[in-house]
Design a protein around this nucleic acid. Structure first.
Lengths: 148, 148
DNA sequence: ACTATATGGTCAAGCAGCTTGACCATCGCG
DNA sequence: CGCGATGGTCAAGCTGCTTGACCATATAGT
């Protein structure tokens, strides 16, 4: 494989990722959730199961805990999350999604599904599934779960 | 296809793109080009063929021309590009890569090829090629040419 | 040819998101 | 109990981007 092919593949991958991010964001906004930035999506994905602490969130977002705390501030201010006392550690605070936060998460899922469906129209259902499997083998998607 | 599958595919795609960006950046730094940020790569790709104007660059980066101009300032300061008078328009200035700029571009290509080769080790040469073709059909990669 | 408008580019100021550094409260181990 | 480690916040600063104003040149209209 030549460098030029690698570049074409890389460019296509980055372009596809950028396009997807944009499409999901537009879809979320179109469903009535304003003031949400793509970066929030990664936070939502982390909070979704059972909530998380700010430090936990920071580690998974790859930023400082101060930055993560500011992000949570914003999400709280916009009604997508709230801070609750941590049940087992009086120092910590558990950040959990509100009802609206869950709605927004569902909106993001729908938007993602919409974009993927368009790919299926181009590539065919079978190819899209194969694409997903190949990508998962390349990017194991362990603790990160970047989401929408 | 269910929403959860679409989310898994989306997450994998975004994770792969992030990983690739990181790998290329590391590879470029390892080859001795410091102070280069991933965003510069998109600029390099645009400048590479024949140079470009600041306005042109701005359009393809999706930022204001002021931001593009600042990016060019930085690239000039670091020795990767230079501004030359435009041969046909006295208002415009043609931004072109310096020798070091070209070297950096080649370094980025090598780093990308390295990352892609690792994918080939996991998926097989054939699958990687198929992956590239599928991605190109999804993200037509028209005027953008995001590169490294 | 002459004015008017559009276009390429820069300068300046401001803002948003992140960082570093300092600090307090609580945990958990010796 | 005492002390280092950990969760979190406050404050200040930096960087990359934006908006707004402006100048120089190009291009179109009459």
């Amino acid at each position: 494989m030549q460098n030029s092919e690698a570049m074409a593949l890389s460019a296509a991958l980055l372009a596809a990722a950028g396009k997807l991010t944009q499409r999901i964001h537009e879809g979320v906004v179109a469903r009535g959730f304003e003031g949400v930035r793509p970066a929030h999506g990664f936070a939502f994905a982390r909070l979704a199961p059972d909530g998380a602490t700010v430090t936990d969130l920071a580690a998974h977002l790859g930023v400082t805990k101060q930055a993560a705390s500011q992000l949570v501030d914003e999400m709280v201010r916009k009604g997508y999350a709230e801070r609750r006392p941590h049940p087992e550690d009086a120092r910590a605070r558990l950040v959990v999604l509100t009802g609206r936060g869950w709605e927004c998460t569902r909106a993001a899922e729908e938007a993602a599904a919409e974009a993927v469906r368009e790919w299926a129209d181009v590539l065919g259902e079978r190819e899209v599934r194969a694409l997903g499997e190949q990508l998962l083998r390349i990017a194991p998607l362990g603790p990160i779960r970047p989401a929408w």
